[in-house]
Each structure stands twice: as structure tokens, then as C-alpha cells.
Simulated assay, not measured.
Amino acid sequence: LYTGDISHTRQFLVGGCARPRKGLQVDTLVIESTLGATESETNGSYTEEVYRLADAIRRVLHRGGSVLLPSFALGRTQEMANIIAQLQEEAVIPFTPVYTVGLGRAVYEIYYKFSDYLHPQATLRPLSRFERLGNVWETSVVQDLLRRPSIIIATSGMMTENTPSAMLAQTMVKSSHHGIFFVGYLDPDTLGYKLLHAAPGDVLQFEYDRPGVEIVLEDIARYRFSAHATRSELAAIIERLQPRNIIYVHGDADALEWMRENTGGDANTFAPLVGETVTIEV
């Protein structure tokens, strides 16, 4: 059995995964381990995180700034767009233009076409509800965009150099009135992680082969909208299935280590490196 990326949490558009039935015979379980190093009890509820983010967005818009939400093109862009729309419709945050970009919009059209697969209570707004972001590689386009408060949902979620979120952030970090709020996982080697942990006065490079930019902006934070199961949920799946072999994948070294040391009982456990071959006795 291969889990892929799983979560028990009901998100705005997608329901949580069904728990495997007891008695299911599984010889080998390949299970994701993304949050293996994160204590489950530190995560608030999904709804609580939505309103924490709303407070931060409202604060930025009221002081005349714009909000950047770096988001993955698949899943997170569509989720965040509809969360923002819902918050505006509930008058929790002001009505300002909401922009989406590129691949995130293309995936949105697929969501719309196959909306029957979403949660039965999900409300998927038409893509026309959200403005199309212009050519952010043109400095004048970004400067014009940021003259008025707005909410911008842009790829990449980890803010890889030269992507739309990085190009927008390159201008936004030079001012103090904007806000950049990450809403997904950040690999420690990425620009997004470095920006999240940067202090005013630090210099970061947002474009390859271009000089770095000094950080002025302080309102940079991360909100947890993970599409991954907590480590206690992962442990419960393993306990329920009782597989003979467990292969832990899709996690940093410390996450894989925690999972291997704290789950599985008497099972044969593996945490292979990329490219490593695992031999299983049957």
C-alpha cells in the first residue's frame, strides 16, 4: 500500500482521507513522513489558522499594503483563492482585488471541470472571480500593482528564485507596509525559508545573476495549511494496518528518523536515500 501525500484534515475544497479499514492485509506500507519531525500538538485547527491569517491580511490592507501568499500551483493556489473569497464575502477582510497567476490558474480550470471530486460542501468560485496577474518580470508592472492594496496568490510556494512570488517579493521587501505570508511547507534550502528567517538588514538574492536586495519588510510569517497528516495520524495508520514492512518516504532526515524510531513496532523498517534500492523478503 502506497499512501502518497495524505491528510485527515477537511480542507476548504477537499475532504480528509478515509482511514484504512481494520483487518486490511498489508504486507508492505510505503508511507509519507513529511511532518515526522513536527510535534502534532503544536498545530492548531485548520479553521483557527484561517482566521489567524485573516487577522494578518486585514492588518496589512488597513495600512495600505499588499499581501503576497506564495502558493503551490496544484492544490494550494485553488484552496487559498477560495478561502480569501470566503473571508471577503463574510466581511472578515476588506474587498480588494485578488490576483492569481500562471500554472495556478491552469490547474484551477481543471478543478472547475472536475468539481464533483471536491468535498460536497465545497464552494468553488469561478476563475473569473480572481484577477490575472500580469508580467511580474517587468519592474514597472510590479510597481504599478503594488500602488494599491491587493492580495496576490503566486507561485512558487517555496519562493524559488525567478518565479512570480520571488519577483514580487523582491520589490515588496524594500518597503515596510506590505506583508508576505507563506502558507505551505518550506524546504530549508529554499529562498522562501531564508526570507522567513531573515532579519531587517539581511541581503537575499531573488533573481539569479542579479545583486541581492536588502530586507526592510518585517511582516513576514508562515501559516500552517498543511495537506499532510500529523505524525500522530501517521503513527495511527501504521498501528491500524500492522504491516510486515514499512518504507518511510517524502520527509527530511529528522522526520524519517523520528518515524522509524517511534512507529512500526516489530516491522521491518526502511528509510532509503534517493536512488537507494530496498530489498524486501516475501
Results as ranks from 00 to 15, higher is better:
Asp5Gln: 10
Val141Met: 10
Leu196His: 06
Glu39Pro: 00
Thr100Asp: 04
Asn268Lys: 15
Ser7Met: 07
Arg21Met: 13
Thr123Gln: 05
Arg52Glu: 13
Thr3Trp: 09
Asp55Phe: 15
Ala85Trp: 14
Met158Asn: 06
Arg224Ala: 05
Met159Ile: 05
Thr3Ile: 00
Asp55Gly: 11
Asp189Pro: 03
Ser156Asp: 14
Leu61Val: 12
Leu13Cys: 02
His250Phe: 02
Phe130Gln: 04
His178Leu: 14
Glu233His: 13
Pro70Asp: 07
Asp202Ala: 06
Gly264Asn: 07
Arg222Asp: 13
Gln11Val: 01
Arg63Trp: 01
Asp252Glu: 10
Phe95Asn: 09
Phe130Glu: 00
Ile83Pro: 01
Ala154Arg: 04
Thr279Lys: 06
Gln88Phe: 14
Ser40Cys: 01
Ser232Cys: 02
Arg59Phe: 06
Gln88His: 12
Pro126Thr: 02
Gly201Arg: 08
Ala221Met: 04
Ile83Lys: 04
His8Gly: 05
Thr100Ser: 02
Ser7Lys: 08
His228Ser: 07
Ala198Asp: 06
Gln121Pro: 01
Ile57Pro: 10
Pro97Asp: 08
Leu124Val: 05
Val278Trp: 03
Tyr223Lys: 01
Asp202Gly: 09
Ala253Trp: 00
Arg125Phe: 10
Val26Ile: 10
Arg19Gln: 13
Ala236Tyr: 10
Ala199His: 15
Tyr223Met: 06
Met158Lys: 03
Thr155Asp: 09
Arg21Ile: 12
Asp219His: 15
Ser128Thr: 14
Ile84Phe: 14
Ser232Phe: 09
Phe95Ala: 13
Leu103His: 09
Val101Thr: 10
Leu53Ala: 05
Gln242Met: 12
Gln242Ser: 06
Met159His: 09
Asn82Glu: 00
Pro70Cys: 03
Gln86Gly: 11
Ser140His: 04
Gly275Pro: 14
Gln11Asp: 03
Glu89Phe: 09
Val50Asp: 01
Ala169Asn: 11
Tyr193Asp: 15
Ser226Gln: 04
Gly212Arg: 06
Leu195Met: 03
Asn82Gln: 07
Pro70Lys: 11
Leu124Phe: 06
Thr155Met: 11
Asp187Val: 06
Leu124His: 09
Tyr112Ile: 00
Leu256His: 08
Tyr99Lys: 00
Ser115Lys: 15
Pro97Val: 07
Val92Cys: 12
Thr171Asn: 08
His8Val: 12
Phe270Glu: 05
Gly275Cys: 08
Ala271Cys: 09
Gly75Gln: 03
Tyr193His: 09
Val274Ile: 15
Ala56Ile: 05
Ser150Met: 04
Leu68His: 10
Asn43Tyr: 08
Tyr108Phe: 12
Thr47Val: 12
Ala56Cys: 08
Leu69Asn: 06
Leu241Trp: 15
His228Ala: 07
Gly44Trp: 02
Glu32Ala: 07
Thr160Gly: 09
Glu257Ala: 14
Gly4Met: 03
Glu90Pro: 10
Arg52Lys: 11
Thr230Met: 11
Tyr111Ile: 02
Gly212Thr: 01
Arg148Ser: 15
Ala85His: 11
